[in-house]
Design a protein around this nucleic acid. Sequence first.
DNA 1: TTGATATTTCTAGTAATATGAAAATATTAA
DNA 2: TTAATATTTTCATATTACTAGAAATATCAA
Lengths: 114, 114
Amino acid sequence: MKILTAVSSLSALAQESRLQVFRLLIQAGKNGVPAGVIGEKLDLPLSTLSFHLSQLKQAGLVACRREGRTLFYSANYKAMNALMAFLVENCCQGQPDNCTIPAECVPEVKGKQK
Amino acid sequence: MKILTAVSSLSALAQESRLQVFRLLIQAGKNGVPAGVIGEKLDLPLSTLSFHLSQLKQAGLVACRREGRTLFYSANYKAMNALMAFLVENCCQGQPDNCTIPAECVPEVKGKQK
DNA sequence: TTGATATTTCTAGTAATATGAAAATATTAA
DNA sequence: TTAATATTTTCATATTACTAGAAATATCAA
């Protein structure tokens, strides 16, 4: 990953409304959520939401597909994983105990089962 | 983690020079690196670097300690892990295969050995 | 083909952030 | 103490980002 790609992903996430949107989509799963429903859940004016969604989309962190009049937005899990991998790249040199990665999504790591 | 904490961490990382600094420190290990050396490696004016270091410090992503005239900056691995955990919190509901976390720093995950 | 629904684009005002030169502070050595 | 080293703070300027109303676009139903 290029550093500027990472910067634009991080910039996209570095804003309260967008971070809320992204976490909502991460939790919603790959089917995604209609824009209107996101706006309702987060109580955002649709023009504002649309601006934020386009930032997230441009950064490659979310995708969207149309179904009828409705646009479903969904999280791009691969992009998120790539970003996290980039952030901690080579973090273990010499001291692997410093930087165990959060294991929320990795079954069977260090005795944690999910 | 509160959402505003995450936003300030992400904002701190969402800038090219700061991201470079942070990754350099992640890779350097817990002893840290003197400010002057960081500036040299990244070819940044020291006043600019100092501004960025204070942003990273305020966000809790780096720490610093003095040794004589020299300030050593180092990455806060715990804060980084907490941030990553927050970003992907509850991401697995129903589809654990979507979101395997980057395993760079976790030995013995899915056959990857380090 | 008209009206309703879902969402985006345009716009402009406001606010936040980045930069680097110059001056200031802290520490050590002579 | 004076000078040198290491780093930060101050400051002005330039750039970028956020917000939400209003108008526009796309799709569907009658």
